[in-house]
Nucleic acid binder design. Structure first.
Lengths: 215, 215, 215, 215
DNA sequence: CATGAATGAGTTTTCATTCAT
DNA sequence: TATGAATGAAAACTCATTCAT
């Protein structure tokens, strides 16, 4: 039950658009610096230096500084997020989880791993969301549609088996993601000791399972 | 059990340091614009225009643009957050909550109200945290110390009465704040329909109470 | 019969908009350099150097480099040209010329003096016209309307007196201005020995008078 | 009495220096774009795109962007203008014009046709002249020498026959070319309805003939 | 105290030109 | 010979900050 991580998808994306070696370095440098110092505090000269190229090279392919940001964020918005969400839902349907517990345990671990594997991208995303709420609105809508479609029937099963509280699907997701997000964000933003995923999963799941038990 | 909101404390703060009327307008304009467009995307000229003063005036009192940011954030960091936290803890001790439920219900509602009442300041705070994790680290440490001191004994009570799961205080706080934060952040950042606090409190508490029930 | 020259009108214009001393120097430097090297071959740094100010100062008032060009050309297009044309026509009506010859002699000398007095502005104007024909079209239309209104009746008089050929007014103007323009342009563009206006007036008029004699 | 137009001479010139098909496209693209947007507002990338070649190819033969401009203007300056002027003078000597009128009519029509047939080149030429008066000075000198030599004797004939005013040759030429230039420039620069050459010739000649009649 | 003109370092961006493939 | 990625110098423009009035 291996999940495709962003690095791989990103790499695909890069190969597709045939980026030269230097251009890939530019993209990588942007990723690092945007995550480290924020978009506006990163100068294109900084990027050029870190990538070991000239300033002209930064603009040759990506045209503008914003183009560089989009080159990082767009795959997330339009490709990778939906694709990961799709894969995730497929995974849910294919594999039969013997209980809601094993299901929730998988979900929590999977999402946490994903987030920690892609800290940098996440951080930039969060920065942009905070500045430009429109991104968040769009994303929220996209994801809620994707999830609602695939998850409703699944939740229904668990509700019938008496393993899951009889709430609206979105409320359940909101609660669960709230806990996960609340746990993750500090770890994504501060570069603390990189989180013991197994232990965290245990803690979160224990809490979630009781909070979402049928009354 | 009215809680002192930031506006009031802020006003105190301003009076203390003897800000002229124009300087207050400058501070207010900064607050609005930093929240709206982010710190780096706000020019000191923007601030001057919105405040209806000259560019020189923006610097007369606050010396630098960063000084302006600090004038907004410092009260949060060094005065208001702790003070509010202190008040909050005092309140806990003064008033006897007849059950953990009424306690948690108060906490959730209080913190939510506080956050929604101070959206703008929150937004700036979040933006700065995301860019500069040091702020978050400091804040986390400060708050955890403050809370731990006052809350441990309180939690012990409820645990003995069999109303609260026997976990480490920090873990309980982390879970609870995770749910609250996960719920709030989207509302602070997007200017969605401004959140029905009573309904949200009900939903969150129902969930928390079962998640934090003793096993 | 003194004609108001551009310098004076320009000065008015500057006083009106309250330009600081340095900003006037910026405008003057732009005028000189645009005329000398052309708009695109003049850098804002060049302008700053010649004006003896910093580069920032160049942009403080005029916002963009194009703004600087417009600040030079607009008075010509929208104020000075029409105003001069108006004055010119008024002058025609006020003063009674005893013959078509004295009339044409006044016109030729007046226009030539005007052009030579404002070489720099003329040169920039010509440069922009050549690059952007729209300017020429607009200007041609504006002037032809202005002139047609005031000149028709005047020409009619001279035609009746048998001093002027019975052609369409526009054709007469085209011929006369053709000769004048053809004579002037080389002198405006090359900074040759600065043209003996009296001698040139004699030459041009002798030619025009016979060319425009009734058949 | 067909006059060799620039296109043809240009083609000769190109063949001589063995331009590859791609290089010809580069030259053609430069011609179009320089005329349309001006030299400095045309980038070598623009040229490459319009010519359908790579950026490197633009420089392969012409070395620099200025080289490209020279490749367009030099034939005018050093080959085509003089050659056309020479052809023109030869034509004058070979063919006997029965009157000054038929002579002037031929000249006017010939020069007008030439100018309208080579609008683009003319426009670039004018642009460069306006920016760099040296070109104009050189050209004026070259042409005046060429013309003076061939034209003096011819004018003498007509003066003796009583068909031409007894002015200095240069003054006559200046007057005539003034009228023609004044008429043409607006048409070269603005892309107005492309000029009825026969009608214009009539108008111009009627005017010129009387202006240049002996007194 | 307040003003706003002036500053100049820093930023994004363009573009002619080179050169390895 | 043709390509187009890479270059880096120079351009236009921004902006926090200073200071004479």
């Amino acid at each position: 039950m291996k999940h495709t991580d962003v690095e791989t998808l990103f790499a695909d994306n890069i190969k597709t658009t045939d980026l030269s070696e230097k251009q890939q370095k530019v993209l990588q440098a942007s990723l690092t610096l945007f995550a480290q110092k924020g978009y506006e505090n990163t100068s294109t000269l900084d990027i050029a230096h870190l990538a070991g190229v000239s300033e002209g090279t930064v603009f040759k392919h990506f045209k503008t500084k914003d183009g560089l940001l989009q080159a990082i964020l767009n795959p997330f918005m339009h490709d990778i997020f939906p694709r990961v969400a799709g894969e995730f839902i497929d995974a849910l349907h294919e594999s039969i989880f013997d209980s809601f517990e094993s299901f929730i345990r998988y979900v929590v671990k999977d999402r946490m791993t994903y987030a920690m594997d892609n800290r940098q991208e996440m951080k930039i995303f969060i920065q942009e969301m905070v500045k430009n709420p429109a991104i968040m609105t769009t994303l929220t809508n996209r994801l809620s549609k994707l999830i609602q479609g695939g998850v409703d029937t699944l939740f229904h099963e668990y509700k019938e088996k008496g393993e899951l509280v009889d709430w609206d699907s979105m409320r359940i997701i909101r609660m669960a993601s709230g806990v996960i997000v609340g746990y993750l964000i500090p770890n994504v933003i501060m570069s603390e000791t990189p989180l013991d995923i197994d232990k965290t999963t245990d803690e979160v799941c224990e809490f979630l399972l009781d909070g979402l038990k049928p009354r």
